[in-house]
């Protein structure tokens, strides 16, 4: 590739200037992405006075953990954390099961009606009934304000089925299933004892995609849930972080309420850090799988 070739043929002056500009450009991007994240992290451990008076830029000022204490003392946030965990674990398990159950048969070229099932699937991606009919279906199934409303309506993703199907098609040769069939292995047994063990990479990718989706979701909770004890973390975050902030009357005389505002702001920074922690901690370990997922998904099946 170009990188290896560059050692053999010397670069022209213009090219070297160009490469230098690329490095400057990418460094700028690095700064623009990283600085807001660092700022929030630093603010969350700085004293409210330092944050409000604008002393905090990149590094914490007057280190304190008061914000985190306030977060962990709030009972609502604990309930939300547990609820989100339940929705994420149960929801993801159902997601992955259904996706494999639909993706594997669709990958079989010999399956009669495969094209029809594929069309049934893809239509749902191009056209939907809209919010109100969707809400009424959940309502008529008596799922409103139950935990199932957070799990069943989104039990399977179209994109993920297509990704899984493409994976099965490219990694499990037809000869393998034919050989198993000749030996008297049923389709279900073949899925359980051959397909699943061979599909660990795609199962990992799907688990991640779905789990992040569940952890970050708030829309279904917003429209389906009413009882505070069922709320996932994201709804509680919205109540604490956003509904409190956007009050325009508070903006107008911000100078007078600065003192009380202080601790509230600190709580916000800490809460942002606590809520993103689970995803961002596992992120470095899983980002390779995500990249793989995007790549498999982009293959034309």
């Amino acid at each position: 590739m170009s990188k290896t070739a560059s050692t053999t043929i010397r670069e022209s002056r213009g090219d070297r200037i160009f490469v230098a500009m690329v490095y400057v450009f990418l460094s700028l991007i690095l700064i623009i992405v990283a600085v807001p994240l660092i700022y929030i992290l630093s603010s969350s451990v700085s004293s409210p006075q330092a944050v409000v008076s604008g002393k905090v830029w990149l590094f914490p000022v007057d280190f304190t953990l008061d914000g985190y204490k306030a977060v962990f003392q709030n009972p609502q946030i604990g309930v939300g954390y547990i609820n989100s965990l339940i929705y994420t674990v149960v929801g993801t398990a159902i997601n992955v099961t259904l996706t494999i159950m639909f993706g594997y048969p669709l990958s079989k070229r010999t399956l009669y009606g495969r094209h029809f099932f594929m069309v049934v699937l893809v239509i749902t991606m191009m056209f939907d009934g809209g919010l109100i009919p969707y809400y009424l279906v959940v309502k008529n199934l008596h799922l409103l304000d139950t935990r199932w409303a957070m799990i069943l309506p989104g039990a399977m993703g179209v994109i993920q089925v297509i990704v899984a199907r493409t994976f099965f098609q490219t990694t499990i040769p037809d000869e393998l299933s034919e050989a198993a069939e000749l030996d008297g292995c049923s389709d279900i047994r073949f899925i359980l004892s051959i397909v699943l063990p061979l599909s660990k990479p795609i199962i990992a990718v799907m688990t991640l995609m779905y789990a992040v989706g569940h952890w970050n979701a708030y829309f279904d909770a917003l429209i389906f849930l009413r009882s505070p004890d069922l709320f996932p973390l994201q709804i509680i975050l919205r109540n604490v972080l956003i509904l409190n902030t956007v009050d325009p009357s508070m903006m107008a005389n911000v100078d007078q309420v600065q003192a009380q505002q202080g601790l509230k702001d600190l709580l916000k920074y800490s809460l942002i850090v606590v809520a993103s922690a689970p995803v961002l901690i596992i992120y470095p370990f899983v980002q390779k799988h995500f990249v793989k997922g995007v790549m498999i998904g982009s293959l034309k099946g």
């Binding site: 992040v212 970050n216 975050l237 995803v279």
Partner: peptide
């Protein structure tokens, strides 16, 4: 540069609001 993708919409909007709060 991939990292912000994993931030939820609620957190993202909070980050926007927090960064755009006057004086703070």
């Amino acid at each position: 540069s991939y990292a912000p993708y994993f931030i939820s919409t609620v957190i993202m909007v909070s980050i926007i609001i927090v960064n755009l709060t006057p004086h703070v």
